[in-house]
């Protein structure tokens, strides 16, 4: 089989009249960790949702294992999604279920496992993210970082082939972050997954990623292996990985001149 699990060709996507993607080409290698970086609002979450076929592109397509995911029927799509996992930026836990039940949810829906086995699997996942003791809490009783770790456990438990993490490290302290990085790396290597990580933590992500794409202004502005990207001195990439305020990438959402705006009060 082809060793790209995902191939994206000439992807165009608009929101109202705003261009989010203007011809994006991107390949995700099977078994590797690919990082997607870019400024806030550049469309990283949107890209993951396009891959999961929650959004439909205006042009171009996403091939998942060689199949155009946007052409599938509803039934086939749900079948295909069983081999994908997406950890939402907001966590998106079910607010009427406890932490334990949230993590158990995919197992209860898709398997006929006996209760004690579900219990063991859930506790193992929760242990891995350090929240075994929080199993009886409700999502409203969790902090943002904890909620995201529960979401991580819930997404990993169903053993997807393709794992997509939307900013898993945001809101985590340095210790937890180290644990999560190892967890993601291990899951990828031991379970033979393919992982896509969206993250702003350049150094940390670069340390576990095999390949990095940087998007800005609706295009891929740089890609390569982490070392190459860190050394890349194209203006976009250089500015982003080193966090410089001025450069090719605008920090501001498109707006009219600042002084004019203030004077026109």
């Amino acid at each position: 089989m082809n060793d790209d699990i995902i191939k994206i060709n000439g992807l165009k996507f608009f929101r109202a009249d705003k261009v989010i993607f203007d011809g994006v080409d991107l390949n995700i290698k099977r078994g590797k960790i690919t990082a997607i970086m870019g400024p806030s609002g550049s469309g990283k979450t949107t890209l993951l949702k396009l891959i999961g076929a929650q959004l439909y592109p205006e042009q171009g397509g996403v091939l998942f294992n060689g199949i155009n995911i946007h052409k599938l029927s509803r039934k086939e799509l749900y079948k295909t999604r069983r081999s994908m996992g997406l950890m939402f930026q907001s966590g998106a836990l079910f607010t009427n279920l406890s932490v334990f039940e949230n993590v158990a949810f995919p197992l209860r829906e898709h398997t006929e496992l006996p209760e004690d086995m579900i219990r063991d699997l859930v506790l193992m996942q929760l242990e891995a993210v350090g929240l075994r003791g929080a199993r009886d809490l409700m999502p409203s009783e969790l902090s943002g970082g904890m909620a995201r770790r529960v979401a991580l456990a819930r997404t990993l438990i169903k053993d997807p082939k393709l794992m997509m993490y939307d900013e898993p490290f945001t809101g985590q302290d340095p210790i937890t972050m180290g644990v999560l990085m190892r967890l993601i790396k291990n899951a990828n290597d031991v379970l033979k997954l393919t992982s896509i990580i969206v993250s702003h933590d350049v150094a940390e992500t670069a340390s576990i990623a095999d390949y990095i794409y940087i998007i800005a202004n609706g295009k891929i502005v740089g890609h390569g292996e982490p070392d190459a990207v860190m050394q890349d001195n194209s203006p976009w990439v250089d500015q982003f990985v080193h966090g410089l305020p001025d450069g090719a990438m605008p920090f501001h959402y498109p707006a009219k001149n600042y002084y004019e705006d203030l004077l026109n009060a």
Binding site: Q54, R81, R82, M84, L86, A92, F94
Partner: peptide, 13 residues
């Protein structure tokens, strides 16, 4: 709160 989206991504209709 994206609970419905996340359910869709878990392949649960």
């Amino acid at each position: 709160t994206e609970q419905i989206s996340s359910m869709e991504m878990m392949a649960v209709d």
